[in-house]
Design a protein around this nucleic acid. Structure first.
Lengths: 208, 208
DNA sequence: GAAAAAATTGACCATTTGGAAAAATATGAA
DNA sequence: TTCATATTTTTCCAAATGGTCAATTTTTTC
């Protein structure tokens, strides 16, 4: 049976299961769950299929592990919003962090998007739990900012959705973005351009 | 060989291939290309697998047909932007049309999103062709509006991306949106709330 | 209403794929 | 060095799946 269920015990276990997860992230984010084979993942991780199955007892388990880890990473930037900070700074900071994540962790973003796209079968409970709670909490913060006249009136939930959408777009729809921008604007600078656009746009949209 | 390659000839061909495409849209958008089986599609279309393969010679061909049709539908709302209209009205109109599409054609949106997410293997050429041309054309229109001082300065391409992202989000990430909004705000009204948020937000962001 | 064309079915096949089992090998603690 | 444990490989299997084909049934045409 698989070894890593609870905690890796040996050096090799820690190393190998990390390599597997990294390879799996690559493969899953590119091909989706059903579009990926254990063989592909194994070979990307530089080992044989049965060897991989020594560490994770099924394809499903690898995927589940990735998803579980991902959610924490995903919530972190929102968590960081400080109710005592300056609203404008907090929100543009959040946007910058999210754009940064699209640039640095596109595979994670796509894995997550894929999961959502297909109805979040393995994540729904957490969305309705942890995620909803966090968003509700932060929405309250934003509401207070609005009541204090620090930012203009708007629906905090849809505001958050819009930030998610616009920032993650640059990871999830990367091909499309690059196709439209053309070869000359498809360099790393597109993230900076996006950040600049979004920050000024949200500043204008939220200025009281 | 498949019959419908060029044009359906008989009544039955027209009807059945339409039913197949509708079923395929349902299945593909839910499970992705590799996650869907011909059997599933056939049974959703109320026929046997070999029967389905009488109309389309492969799973790939069904998918390709869907994607080809989709792009036209997808470009239509942007196409409608009128350079001679009032900028604000044109842009909020565009947003409304896009939100409408997320509400009425979520399966199409998800099919498209899935294709993008996995690198648009079957669409890339069209993205770099038709799509880019259209967007470039409309970006010029927006540029002129900016130069004429009718809307505030911003990058037209990223403006368009942001509209795509925010509106399609409500179809592609529907599960997440509903999970966060909770049962009471998950009715049809969420599209209206989204539209209201986005329209006022873009109005504020673009007011010169 | 008979012949031709179109549509449908049932049986079948090759390949891919997730996964199991057991044997063989490497590693580490005593 | 030896024994126990951890790791890896080889071999294999059963189910799922995309697709074919010949035979049969239905529809259309004349």
């Amino acid at each position: 049976m698989a070894v890593v269920q609870t905690k890796p015990k040996t050096r090799i276990q820690a190393e190998k299961s990390e390599r597997i997860l990294d390879a799996a992230l690559e493969i899953f984010s590119e091909n989706g769950f059903r579009g990926s084979t254990i063989d592909q993942i194994a070979s990307a991780a530089g080992m044989s299929k049965p060897n991989l199955l020594y560490y994770f007892k099924s394809k499903e388990e690898i995927h589940q592990t990735l998803i579980d880890r991902l959610l924490k990473t995903w919530l972190a930037p929102l968590e960081q919003i400080d109710e005592n900070g300056d609203p404008m700074t907090e929100i543009t900071g959040y946007i910058r962090r999210k754009i940064e994540m699209s640039k640095d962790l596109p595979r994670e973003s796509r894995l997550f998007a894929n999961e959502m796209l297909h109805g979040a079968p393995r994540t729904l409970a957490k969305l309705e739990g942890e995620l909803k709670e966090l968003v509700d909490r932060k929405a309250e913060v934003i509401k207070r900012w609005i009541q204090d006249g620090k930012i203009s009136e708007c629906d905090p939930w849809h505001l958050i959705f819009s930030i998610w959408a616009t920032t993650q777009h640059y990871a999830d729809f990367d091909v499309q973005v690059r196709a439209v921008l053309g070869p000359d604007r498809s360099g790393e600078s597109r993230f900076q351009d996006a950040a600049r656009f979004l920050e000024t746009f949200y500043l204008r949209g939220l200025k009281p």
